[in-house]
Design a protein around this nucleic acid. Structure first.
Length: 396
RNA sequence: GUGGGAUUAGCUCAGUUGGUUAGAGCACUAGUUUGUGGCACUGGGGGCCGCGAGUUCGAAUCUCGUAUCCCACCCCA
């Protein structure tokens, strides 16, 4: 759990605004879904075998005996809303983006919080691999506009034609070496066998060199889509690495899987992840609808965002005489109808007012002292150009 | 769920073998000319030393418990 304020808030909103602008340029529309959903939704979509559902959900029974939980990710809720609004039956394409809090009960560490924020995008109704490429381009655009460097990792997970077959052959392979692999891998064999491939245990790794490769087992359709995707990215100058071990942790992904990683933020290096999930809508009782999406973890991006230079803005108004304070307050109220104004209620000398104006990064420092009070004028200094003038109050 | 580290001023941290009134830098506030900013100088405010027990003449310091945070594993954004 983390508070977001001051400079963090500046960065946070800067990211949301930038990502929103990019998503809108791609023709996506904002969608807001509830933080609370029925637990069953995530069990059916994310998958019972995943850690997220297995042990990381903030789950409870509410006063109406409903089994609910705070959403651990964004896609399931958006798909639920998509189906509930009968957009699956309406046909056509529907493109959404969202941002908000997600909750996972895990041991916190750098870049991993129990309440965190994601910015995500979901596209429904487009089965073309061009849409997959578009998702990657959008992610890349957002990161670039925020000045964030990244590596893009790419894989294909196959579809219902080729994936189950591959899974079986992999499990058979694991069983052939089961006596020699680590405890974690033995567990993974049952929960999520593909995960064994990126086990960090060296002994396991050497054993798995001979394991069947997912990319060699793709069916014709998946194979040609993957080839096409790489071609599109090449032609649009988006660099990528093929990572045959890249497996999305959520059960609903198929075909394209991608992950953007940063080497500069500690061990939690994934800053964005996504892929295609053509079967999810029908898993949740909608009409079969191809879909693809991605999500970005905002907290992980925070320290990587390069903020634009802040410019001096607005006015600072202060008094050097107690008698002028009331006047200054009135002027501030008037000026605030159109400008950002900071007002200091304490009478102090000019130097302190100038310091104060600097501190709030004001463009103009306006001061009324005894001379100005007598002459009904106000002294104004442009702190950027270092020019100054004294004008009549009626002109201020 | 497993392992390690930390907790002293608003922030980053010193603090000797246990010994007077617990320090520094930054930040804040004021003054250095009732009139010129980012710098400098001088002063000032600000601490349940995470919390609770214990040992001791005496604990920020030693012991135990507890809470919180951090880092890593697992997994994920």
């Amino acid at each position: 759990m983390n508070d977001i304020l001051s400079e963090d808030y500046e960065r946070f909103t800067y990211f949301i605004n930038t990502a929103t602008d990019v998503a809108q340029k791609y023709g996506f529309h904002f969608i807001e879904t509830p933080l609370l959903e029925e637990t069953a939704l995530f069990k059916r979509s994310v998958g019972e075998s995943s850690d997220i559902v297995g042990k990381e959900m903030y789950q409870f029974i509410d006063k109406g005996e409903n089994d609910v939980c705070l959403r651990p990710e964004g896609t399931a809720g958006v798909v639920r809303a998509f189906i509930q609004k009968k957009l699956d039956k309406a046909g056509g394409t529907h493109r959404f983006f969202y941002h908000g809090s997600m909750f996972r009960y895990e041991r916190p560490q750098k870049g991993r919080l129990r309440q965190f924020h994601q910015f995500g995008v979901e596209s429904f109704g487009v089965d073309s691999v061009y849409e997959d490429a578009t998702m990657i381009m959008m992610t890349s655009d957002i990161l670039k506009r925020c000045g964030i460097g990244y590596r893009l990792q790419l894989n294909s997970l196959g579809d219902s034609n080729c994936m189950p077959q591959y899974r079986d052959s992999l499990v058979a392979f694991i069983e052939s070496v089961e006596d020699e692999i680590c405890e974690d891998c033995k567990r993974r064999k049952d929960t999520n066998p593909i995960r064994v491939l990126d086990c960090k245990n060296e002994k396991c790794q050497s054993l798995y060199e001979n394991a069947p490769k997912l990319l060699n087992s793709l069916c014709e359709g998946c194979e040609s889509d993957f080839t096409k995707l790489k071609k599109i990215l090449d032609e649009n100058n988006i660099a990528y690495e093929i990572d045959t071990n890249l497996v999305r942790g959520l059960d609903y992904y198929s075909k394209t899987a991608f992950e953007f990683v940063s080497d500069n933020i500690g061990s939690q290096s994934a800053i964005a992840g996504g892929g295609r999930y053509d079967r999810l809508v029908e898993f949740l009782d909608g009409r079969p609808t191809p879909a693809v999406g991605f999500a970005m973890g905002i907290e992980r991006l925070m320290e990587l965002i390069v903020m634009p230079e802040t410019k001096r803005e607005g006015y600072y108004i202060g008094a050097m005489d107690e008698e002028a304070v009331d006047l200054v307050v009135g002027l501030t109220h008037k000026k605030r109808q159109s400008k950002k104004v900071t007002c200091d209620f304490k009478a102090k000398n000019l130097k302190n007012h100038l310091k104060g104006a600097d501190r709030v990064n004001a463009r103009f420092c306006c001061v009324i002292g005894s001379d100005e009070l007598a002459n009904k004028t106000i002294w104004i200094k442009d702190l950027q150009n270092r020019t100054e003038e004294t004008i009549k109050l009626t002109e201020f």
